[in-house]
């Protein structure tokens, strides 16, 4: 068999090609998602010099090491607070967190709900491969019930988080879920997430043939994609609380929340530093705060599927 080596790739400008080959296994879904992300960046014309990627630890966390932009590979679970600090310090930069389900929702779970609550103006891409890939396939807070992992050898007895539902309720401005199979729609959704001012969150279900698929009847990467094809139901703007994922049952993909843009966390932090704000009465300051408050009642209507933009679906 001869190996055909492509000389160039349309995304080369966005990649640290000198670092290739990457660490990911053949058939892993992370590269597919990264490709969609970089195309989305290109499509919306994001200046890569003004863009930052922050990752935590894990297979997905390695992504920061391959993108040609300022990038930070932080500690396990702390990508979000690192990004929150950086974005607050430098609000003109585009900050994306690209990390795994375990990183963002187990060890980092507290940070992500608070970043959503604050409406920090960052984009978070969570690759949900149902497991801790990097450490060999242990139980994650996203492992479906009955899932076999190295630390749930008799089948997972816990129930997983519904990530989209959790983040929607925490107050994110944009929430969507796709899979590594639904690449085109993922790309469009990432474009929206990148453009959105406010906390945007895109969950991407993805195959980990090596550490998860292998133990759960999906040894071939394509098996997981076939599973996605069989059970995924694309439906926009349904109540994200319905986004529960159960083994061998249909699950919902799509855009769950696309809320009207509001003042971001950083807008407010920087407003505090303006002398017009500081040198006024507390009554006027409170007025400004109320004027720029988050409209969580609108968000909750959107979440419960009664929002005006519910028609879009």
């Amino acid at each position: 068999m001869s190996i055909i080596k492509a000389e160039t790739h349309p995304l080369d400008d966005y990649l640290r090609t000198e670092r290739l080959p990457h660490v990911w296994c053949p058939g892993c879904g992370i590269g597919t998602v990264l490709g969609a992300y970089l195309r989305a960046m290109k499509n919306v014309g994001l200046d890569s010099e003004k863009s930052i990627m922050v990752s935590g630890i894990g297979c997905t966390g390695r992504t920061a090491g391959y993108v040609r932009m300022d990038s930070f590979h932080t500690t396990h679970g702390r990508a979000i607070p690192f990004a929150v600090g950086l974005k607050a310090a430098r609000p003109e930069l585009n900050v994306t967190v690209f990390s795994g389900d375990g990183d963002l929702f187990a060890i980092g779970g507290n940070h992500i709900i608070h970043a959503a609550r604050r409406n920090a103006n960052i984009t978070v891409i969570a690759i949900n491969n149902f497991t801790y890939g990097m450490t060999g396939g242990q139980l994650a807070p996203t492992t479906p019930e009955t899932g076999i992992t190295t630390t749930s050898p008799y089948g997972n007895v816990e129930s997983p988080f519904n990530l989209a539902g959790l983040i929607a309720v925490a107050g994110a401005s944009y929430v969507a879920r796709w899979t590594s199979l639904h690449v085109r729609r993922l790309e469009k959704s990432l474009e929206k997430a990148l453009k959105k001012r406010g906390f945007s969150f895109v969950e991407v279900l993805s195959q980990c043939p090596t550490a998860y698929g292998r133990r759960n009847g999906m040894r071939d990467p394509v098996d997981t994609l076939k599973y996605f094809q069989k059970y995924a139901v694309v439906k926009n703007h349904v109540n994200p609380l319905e986004g529960v994922i159960e083994p061998n049952k249909p699950f919902i993909l799509g855009e769950f929340v696309d809320a009207p843009e509001e003042a971001t966390f950083e807008d407010k932090l920087w407003e505090l530093t303006k002398s017009e704000f500081l040198h006024t009465s507390q009554a006027e300051r409170s007025e400004w705060i109320i004027e720029h408050r988050r409209h969580l009642e609108i968000l909750s209507r959107i979440i419960s599927g009664r929002g005006e933009d519910n028609e879009q679906s």
């Binding site: 929150v84 600090g85 974005k87």
Partner: peptide, 25 residues
């Protein structure tokens, strides 16, 4: 002209500090 954030815990505080420091503060 500075930024103050009360974080959700000290794990996050220290991470935010490093992020802001790389941001030049």
């Amino acid at each position: 002209g500075g930024i103050f954030i009360q974080m959700e815990d000290e794990l996050g505080s220290m991470a935010a500090l490093l992020g802001a420091s790389w941001g030049g503060k």
